[in-house]
Deep mutational scan, measured.
Amino acid sequence: TFVEFNGKKVEYPTPEAAEKAAKKLAKKLNLKVTKKNGNYKLE
C-alpha cells in the first residue's frame, strides 16, 4: 500500500500501517488524505 505526498511515494507493508502513516503525515503537513485504488494520497 502506497502513501503519496509531495511527489514522493512511500510503500508500507500493510494497509493499516499506510493508513496510520497517512493520517499522521496529513496532520503534520496540514493536508487531507484521499484514498484511491487502495492507496493514500495527501493533498
Score class of each variant (00 low, 15 high):
T1R: 08
F2L: 08
F2V: 09
F2Q: 05
F2Y: 13
F2E: 04
F2R: 04
V3W: 01
V3G: 00
E4Y: 11
E4P: 00
E4L: 08
F5W: 13
F5Q: 01
F5A: 03
F5L: 08
N6A: 11
N6E: 09
G7Q: 05
G7N: 09
G7F: 05
K8Y: 14
K8S: 09
V10S: 06
V10W: 15
V10I: 14
V10C: 10
E11C: 12
E11F: 15
E11M: 15
Y12T: 00
Y12Q: 00
T14Q: 03
T14N: 10
P15E: 12
P15R: 12
P15F: 05
P15I: 09
P15N: 09
E16M: 12
E16Q: 13
A17L: 13
A17Q: 11
A17N: 04
A17E: 13
A17R: 07
A18I: 01
A18E: 00
A18N: 00
A18M: 00
E19K: 11
E19A: 10
E19G: 07
E19F: 15
K20S: 11
K20E: 13
K20V: 10
K20C: 09
A21E: 06
A21V: 08
A22T: 03
A22Q: 01
K23L: 14
K23C: 14
K24W: 15
K24Q: 14
L25M: 09
L25Y: 05
A26R: 02
A26G: 07
K27M: 11
K27W: 09
K27R: 11
K27Y: 10
K27C: 12
K28N: 07
K28Y: 11
K28E: 13
K28F: 10
L29T: 04
N30C: 06
N30K: 11
L31T: 03
L31I: 05
K32Y: 08
K32L: 10
K32A: 08
K32Q: 09
V33E: 02
V33N: 01
V33R: 01
V33D: 00
T34C: 07
K35C: 12
K35D: 06
K36W: 13
K36V: 15
K36Q: 15
N37L: 07
N37M: 07
G38W: 02
G38F: 04
N39P: 01
N39T: 12
N39R: 06
Y40M: 04
K41R: 12
K41V: 15
K41P: 02
K41I: 15
L42A: 02
L42M: 04
L42W: 01
E43C: 10
E43T: 12
E43N: 06
